[in-house]
Design a protein around this nucleic acid. Structure first.
Length: 318
DNA sequence: TTTATTGT
């Protein structure tokens, strides 16, 4: 029996990804009056819950596990992985743990399924000794050569080597930042207008959340979204680069849970197309219902987050 | 500030 895992934010559904729109809007904006419409995202089908749901199904979802205390205290142990993964693993495919982030790797596409980070004011604080100028991109030798991305795959491709777990999120040590340069944590990203601009803006926004939230949990990953082609059929199509056929995702997602001083949570989830976007974008126009990411990526996000302490989703009180 | 690649 299906159940509604997340409160559906009606406004997010008004334009984004509603299947019936897609045939009509191919090649155009869906309509000029839509405040949350930014063109490219809408050419793709992002699966969402139906806009009209049976209210009988909208029962509050009870916490799946009880080991997270009612106060929601972060784990007291010094196990960094348990801190980062406090609210559960989105999936369990080829998981690796690093100094300050956790990754699930997609061997077929030569890039991650997801990466998970736990940002704190301390970990993102400026540290003159921890600087990306000391870092180099390098192969992840923990994976078989058949499944590895290499620097030469990216060279001349036209794409940036874009971080999923951002380098600047990991200033606690040079090792922590250095490990974000593993090519398993890298995806081909459009440079100008995306990695260096719109996506960077989103990463900066997430870092700034640590100014008034002691704990910020971030899950980031690629999407390969289906798109209706001119023959009327729907296909997943994406470029691959280099001798190792590293996949170029059509989109990237970021799901954020921030905890305030009271121990209440706010969840925000974003999808951005891997394309040059205008300089003046409003990040919040790229918010989507988290279940649309879960459906598209084959993941389940923050399953162990106590639902009774989740107070906001995408800025809307619940 | 942070994100990077290419060419010299």
């Amino acid at each position: 029996m299906s159940k509604i895992r997340w409160a559906t934010v009606a406004s997010s559904l008004s334009c984004l990804g509603i299947g019936s729109f897609l045939g009509k809007i191919y090649g155009t904006r869906c309509h000029d009056s839509c405040a949350s419409c930014n063109g490219p995202l809408h050419y793709f089908s992002l699966p969402v819950a139906e806009a009209k749901v049976n209210t009988e199904l909208q029962v509050p979802v009870t916490p799946i596990r009880q080991e997270i205390s009612a106060k929601g205290d972060a784990p007291t142990g010094n196990n960094r992985v348990s801190q980062i993964m406090r609210f559960g693993f989105p999936g369990l495919d080829n998981v690796r743990t690093l100094k300050d982030y956790v990754i699930s790797y997609d061997r077929r596409n030569r890039t991650a399924n997801w990466v998970f980070e736990h940002l704190t004011p301390e970990n993102v604080a400026y540290n003159e000794y921890v600087d990306r100028k000391h870092c180099e991109f390098f192969e992840d030798e923990s994976f078989h050569p058949y499944h590895r991305a290499r620097n030469e795959d990216y060279k001349g491709s036209g794409y940036d080597r874009g971080h999923l777990a951002a380098a600047a999120n990991h200033r606690s040590s040079l090792q922590a930042m250095g490990e974000t340069f593993l090519l398993s944590n890298i995806s081909p990203q459009v440079g100008k207008g995306f990695n260096r601009d719109a996506w960077n803006k989103l990463e900066n926004y997430v870092r700034k959340l640590t100014k008034n939230h002691p704990n910020v949990y971030v899950c980031t990953g690629p999407l390969y979204l289906p798109r209706k082609e001119p023959d009327g059929k729907t296909y997943v199509k994406y470029e691959v680069i280099g001798k190792n056929n590293v996949a170029v995702p059509t989109h990237f997602f970021k799901v954020i849970v921030m905890e305030n001083e009271k121990g209440d949570f706010h969840l925000q989830s974003f999808v951005m197309p891997n394309q040059a976007l205008p300089d003046n974008i409003n990040l919040f126009n790229y918010q989507v219902p988290v279940d649309s990411i879960e459906r598209a990526a084959g993941l389940l996000m923050f399953e162990k987050l106590p639902r009774n302490r989740l107070k906001y989703i995408n800025g809307k009180k619940i």
